[in-house]
Structures are given as C-alpha cells and as structure tokens.
Write a protein that binds this DNA or RNA. Structure first.
Length: 638
DNA sequence: GGCTCTTGTCATGAT
DNA sequence: TGATCATGACAAGAG
C-alpha cells in the first residue's frame, strides 16, 4: 500500500511539476517516454542487457540529469525527445474543430440510422462485443475519466479551442446518453476522432476543412457505426464487466473500437486465437500491461494518477484542436485529484492487484530464473521472451545479464510487499524489468527470516516450493549469509541503494563479521555484473573488429582490382603513344630529307601544349661504373 | 584426461 | 576517502 502510494505520489508530483512548468503546450508524451522508460521496458521486456540501471536511479532522474552517461535509457530519452521535436518541426496536420464537430454529427446521424444493424451486430457477436466492450471499458476506464474532464472543462467554460466544436457537441450527446459517471461517449468519440486523425495522417490528408468525399464519408460512417454500438454498450460496459472476460475475446477483438484498440486487439488476436480461454484471459491481462496504456494493470492507478492516460489522451489528440482543452483539462484534473485521491487510488490499486489471478502475477514473473534461459522480457514481452530463450547467458543486443536481477523477480510478490524497507519497491521494480540470472536458483527464495530491523518478519516461502527448495543449489555468498544469519538475500544486498546499505550496516546491529560479509557480498555481486558487462563489451568489440577486418579486406581487394585495371590501361595507352610517335616521326624529315629514326628521336609535349621533336637522351654509358658503385654500396651494407 | 567455454572472483587502477 | 566501475588474470565447473 505504501509502496504504491509512494510511487504514485512521486509520479503525480513530478508530473504536476512538469506540467506546471511547461505551460500551455504540454509535451507529456516526451516526458512520459523518458520518465516511464523503465515501465516501458517492464512491459516490453528487453531491458538494457548488461547495464545495471537500477530503478531507483532512474526514478530520481526525471529529466535525464544525474543519469549515468552510458545509461542506454538516457539515449532513449534524448532520442525520443529529438524525434518528437523533429516531428513537430515537420508540422503535423492539425484538424480543425469543424472536422470534429462534423464527426460528431455523423455519429449522431449514424446512431439513429444504423441503430438496428448495430444492435443486430451486437447480438450476433454479443459476447464479442461484450469483450470488446471490456476492452473498450478498460480503455474507457483509463481514458474516459480524462476524456470526460477533457471535454467537459472547455465546454463548461465555453471557451478554448473546442468550445463550439467537438467537445461541445460531444458533451451534448454524452449528456443525452450517459449522464452520471463515466460519460464514455465523448471519450469514445474522442478516440474515434483521434483514430481518424491517425488514419488521416497515414493517408496523407493534411486538410479536412473541405467536406470529405463520399468514400471517406462512407468510411467514416462505417467506422462510426461501430462507435454507435459501443456507445450503446458503454454505460453497461463501464459499469463493470470484468466477469465477462470469460467470454469470447477473439470475436471481441474483431470489433475494433478505434485504431488504438485495433492495434491492441489485433496483436492480441494473433496470439490469442489458438489458446484456450484461460490463456486468453491471461493474455488479456498481458495485453493490458503491454498496451499503450501501461496503467491498465491497475485501474486504480489510471483513475487516480492518470499519468500514463495523460499520455494516451495527448497521443490521441496530438496537435489537434482538442489539444488546448486537453491541456486545460489535464491541469484541472490534477487540481481536482488532490492528494486525497491517492487514498482511493491506493485502494483501487491494491484491490486490483489482489483481484488479479495469482497465476497472472506469476506469469508476469514467470521467468523464475531457475535457469539461465530466463527470458529478458518475461511474459509481458512475448517477443523478447521467445527471442531470449537461449541457453547462453548472453542474449542478443537488447538483452543480457544483470546478474542477480532475476533473483528479484523470482521473489514472491507477497513477500516483496511485506518488505517495508524503503528500498523494497525498488527491488520490486527491478524484478520486473531485469530478467537475467547468473546466480543459483536458491537465491530466488530467501529463507524465512525475521528482520531484526523494524520487527518485520519475512513471509515464509510459498507452498509451491516443496521439499526440494532446500536442496536447491545455493551460492556461496547465500550460504555465508545464511550461516551468518543475515536477514537479506544476496539480491537485496547487491541491489539496494548505497544509502540504504549503509543504513543497514549501521543500524541493524550487525557484528563486524556480518558487516564484512555484507560488504563482500555486495562487492562480489556488483563485480559479477561488471564482469558480465565487460565480457559483453569485449565480445561486441571483437565482433566489431571482425566486421572491420572483413570490410578492410573487401576494400583491399577492390583497390587491388582497380590497381590492376589501371596498370593494364596504362600499358595500353603507352603502346598507343609509342605507335603514334613512330607514325609521326616516320612522317617527319631531317635536314637531309631522311625520315627521323624513332630510336634516335622522340616526341615531347611541352608545358605550353606544343609537341617538339627531341633527340633521345640515352643513359650514361658508364653503366659499368654504376655497377661498380652499386657493388660498393652493397658491400658497405654487408 | 585434456581442451574449451562459461562464470565467478580477486586485484588493481580509474572515475 | 569510499563506492563504483572496468578489466586482466585466475580458478572452478561443465560439456
């Protein structure tokens, strides 16, 4: 509880500061992409392979400051910012408010006209739509809140870029349908409008002030007809259809709510189709964690902090006309949230975490690290998990080893939450996005010990450990720590911040032997990681040098070929010159009227371009003298 | 049993 | 000055 609260509070505060500092134009996505890069790596899997980037270090380095210059996340941060700036410099097409208003009217018209087919479609794929609604509801749960505020705020104010456009009309329709809680319609339409924007971007449509053509109109109508169905179902969907997860998800996936959802559902459908329902459910959770809204795992987080949903909303709107009201809505929402909202947020978050199937949580940490084949990304990153299933500890470029990291993730979440040390959440975070094991499996389940500090007792191991848990191989350091009654695992000792480590050394009443062992364990653990990094770099350097050698070989061969070709050409040209010289001299006559002997005369081209006949300068006759001098020189050398 | 590869560890210098 | 990192060297284990 405190962990989540602390984490979310930090995120909220920092995000609020950022928003307030930036001003009207909020580049939330850039900040989020930088700040939440660890989270992205959590979900996407491949983390910086051999670079030890503890989560706490990134947590405290929001804007790229104080980050290790070699930290790849820093490169990612600046790269993201640079790319974003470049995109902005290109001038992305902005959709006028009039377009959004037109879309809204189309929605309403389509709503009335296509109500029957939509409902029939709904009945045909009722389960699917319910599941689709589940997806929509999940997104709506995260997005609608923001969407509500986003559109409601400018509409109420009657000002801003969307006062007479989309937001106003959106609010009217949404008021007609859903009045009280979520108002999903505006947001869905927002999502649709953003979807249209995305598609328009893809189609190169830069200006839509002109009424769209019939094809586009029909296209929009088809798209919006789906939205009507969704709008009809949204109130019931938002009311909570978590139990409907059991329904057929694949059919739901076919009902793309928006481009955003389509991207998510398609990716899910490809994976989910051959799987049984249970796996589909699991995938559904995975999808929630892998979708663009990272807070899907914890709706409470989405409802409360809304940090990542901010990114979603901003991404949906982009530079569109709704951006202004979104910015204002973001500020207003933050103001409305307050810190008291964190309580409910924590409750929701923890309820959600508790409500999740433990198997799902286990899947999130399915890389038990019991072998070196542990994947880097875990189940949340299927691609990486499949890719990194190598027996070698060194994975591809994107993945690698972080030593004890996998030990962290193998620690049962329950026990992790029981750690109330201040660095415990850091380990929890690392447990998600570090995923490689170089240590013995026994470290994954530290023995139940009583923490001398704070009187906290570590939870005993779970039931699945069985009688073989003690038989697992333990590292020497782990054995030493056990023998010395050190209530920390090697992983914890290595990964805890130095400040916490020093506090532990000072405040836990350890004996000098224990302190020495703790320091040794920490030193060895970090050195182990360093050695792995070093070896990885060495291999990379070797690979790079080999490639360089191959490149240089190819260059040498090419130059040799050019040399031979040039020599051949020069020989041919020389022969031609000799032949021409003979011809010219044969046509010339000396004083006696005889043709010039080519062996005694030659043609020389002067600097001014004039060709003159010169007698051949034969080398000095004193060849024997030269030979003698050469011989003398050779003798001197010898 | 020797060889090779991988990995952990130590020592040492640099940051 | 201590912590951390980088790296060469060595040893142990596995195939």
């Amino acid at each position: 509880m405190q962990i989540a609260k602390k984490y979310l509070t930090e995120g909220l505060i920092q995000l609020t500061i950022l928003l307030s500092l930036i001003g009207v134009r909020v580049d939330i996505d850039s900040y989020l992409s930088g700040y939440y890069s660890p989270l992205i790596e959590i979900n996407l899997g491949p983390s910086s392979a051999y670079t030890q980037t503890p989560f706490h270090s990134l947590r405290d380095n929001l804007d790229g400051y104080s980050v290790h210059p070699k930290c790849p996340e820093l490169d990612y941060f600046f790269a993201s910012r640079r790319l974003l700036d470049e995109v902005r410099n290109l001038g992305s097409p902005r959709f006028p408010t009039q377009l959004n208003a037109w879309l809204v009217h189309q929605v309403s018209a389509t709503d009335k006209a296509d109500c029957g087919p939509s409902t029939s479609n709904n009945t045909d794929t009722s389960s699917g739509l319910e599941s689709s609604g589940d997806e929509a509801s999940r997104d709506s749960e995260h997005l609608l809140d923001r969407g509500q505020d986003v559109c409601q705020t400018p509409a109420e104010r009657g000002q801003g870029p969307c006062n007479a456009g989309a937001c106003g009309a959106l609010k009217e329709e949404s008021d007609a349908k859903v009045k009280e809680e979520e108002e999903p319609a505006p947001l869905t339409q927002l999502a649709h409008s953003s979807t249209l924007e995305h598609e328009s971007l893809l189609e190169g449509i830069t200006s839509l002030n002109i009424p769209p053509s019939i094809d586009i109109d029909q296209h929009w109508s088809n798209l919006l007809s789906l939205s009507v169905t969704d709008l009809d179902d949204l109130d019931s969907l938002v009311s909570g259809r978590v139990s409907d997860i059991d329904s057929d998800i694949t059919s739901a996936i076919s009902q793309d709510v928006s481009l955003h959802d389509a991207m998510v559902t398609n990716s899910v459908s490809e994976r989910a189709e051959p799987r049984p329902d249970t796996q589909q459910r699991r995938i559904l959770f995975r999808m929630e964690s892998t979708s663009s809204s990272h807070s899907d795992v914890s709706p409470g987080m989405a409802l409360g902090l809304a940090a990542l949903p901010f990114a979603s909303v901003c991404n949906l709107t982009g530079n569109g006309a709704l951006g202004g009201c979104l910015d204002e809505a973001v500020f207003e929402q933050i103001n409305q949230l307050g810190l008291e909202g964190l309580d409910t947020m924590d409750t929701q978050l923890m309820d959600c975490l508790e409500g999740i199937d433990p198997q799902v949580l286990e899947d999130l940490d399915s890389d038990s690290g019991l072998s070196l084949e542990s994947s880097s990304g875990g189940p949340v990153s299927p691609g990486s998990s499949e890719m990194s299933s190598s027996s070698s500890s060194y994975c591809e470029d994107e993945c690698g080893a972080t030593g004890y990291s996998s030990e962290v993730e193998s620690v049962p979440p329950k026990s992790i939450t029981d750690y109330t040390t201040s660095w415990a959440p850091i380990d929890l975070s690392e447990s998600v996005w570090h995923d490689h094991s170089y240590s013995s499996p026994a470290l994954f389940h530290p023995p139940p010990v009583t923490f001398p500090h704070k009187g906290i007792k570590e939870e005993p191991l779970s039931d699945d450990e069985g009688p073989f848990s003690d038989e697992r191989e333990m590292s020497r350091d782990e054995l030493r720590a056990r023998a010395m009654f050190i209530p920390f695992s090697v992983l914890q000792i290595v990964n805890m911040p130095v400040e916490e480590f020093l506090e532990v050394l000072d405040g836990q009443g350890f004996s000098p032997e224990q302190v020495t062992l703790l320091r040794d364990i920490r030193r060895r653990g970090k050195n182990k990681l360093a050695a792995q990094n070093c070896r990885k770099r060495k291999l990379d350097a070797i690979t790079g040098l080999q490639e360089e050698v191959e490149r240089l070989h190819a260059q040498r061969d090419r130059l040799l070929r050019e040399k031979h070709l040039t020599a051949k050409t020069m020989g041919a040209v020389g022969q031609q010159i000799k032949q021409l010289t003979r011809d010219v001299l044969a046509r010339l006559r000396d004083d006696s009227g005889q043709p010039l002997n080519p062996e005694r005369f030659t043609l020389q081209c002067g600097a001014n371009g004039r060709v003159v006949v010169q007698p051949v300068r034969r080398p000095a006759v004193s060849t024997s003298t030269g030979n003698k001098t050469d011989k003398r020189k050779k003798e001197k050398k010898q």
